[in-house]
Amino acid sequence: MSDPDQLIPEESDPDQLIPEEEEDLLEWASMAKLYAVGYIRILAEAIKRGDADLQVDPVAWENTLIAIEEVMVEHIRGRLHGPTPITVEDIERMQRLRGLGSAALSGGERSPELCPLALRCMECLFGRDWKRAARVAAFYARALNQEFHPRSGT
């Protein structure tokens, strides 16, 4: 099974090394995808439970969701590929999710649309394996969030 964010090789020579710029893109895309799905899962679960603390830093949310939208554009451009084809509609859904999440994180409305939309966005990134990927990603996102945005008293 190939890596879901593997760059599409320009030539079929297996001995050809990936240029450094493309390797950097692959690494960046993989990390953005991991943290986006982690934050999406954390936020959706907190909203579903009705938690007062949504457990995601608003700046981390915004930056990560913008990054994943850029990764999705690279999928459409053909520079990256994954387990599912990415469409313009997928990017629009991710933008909608970013807006709904940002509103909730700033103390605004917790839209009932957010949780079903979150599930759809995670599935568009990871395909049928999104549940396992989301569990792993949430672990790493919580750790990163705690390291850079620690909450007092927790």
Rank of each mutant, 00 (worst) to 15 (best):
P4M: 02
P14S: 03
I76C: 00
E22L: 12
R49H: 05
A103F: 01
W28P: 02
A141N: 10
L80T: 01
D24Q: 11
Y35T: 12
L54D: 04
I40K: 08
L43Y: 05
E20D: 10
W130L: 08
Q95C: 06
I8C: 01
D15V: 01
I18L: 13
I8H: 04
T87W: 09
T87F: 11
H81N: 04
R110H: 01
A67Q: 03
P19D: 15
Q6S: 13
L97D: 11
R49P: 00
G50F: 04
N145V: 07
L144A: 10
Y35E: 09
E62K: 06
G127Y: 10
L65V: 05
A137F: 11
P19I: 02
Y39S: 09
M94F: 15
P150T: 03
I91W: 10
D90M: 06
I76Y: 03
A29I: 01
R79G: 02
E147N: 07
A133M: 14
E10A: 05
A103E: 15
R110W: 07
E22K: 10
T84P: 01
V136Y: 08
F126D: 12
V37P: 02
F148V: 06
C124M: 15
I40R: 13
K131S: 09
Y39T: 14
E70C: 01
Q146K: 10
A36C: 12
R132Y: 09
D57F: 01
D24R: 13
G107T: 04
C124S: 15
G108D: 04
D90R: 08
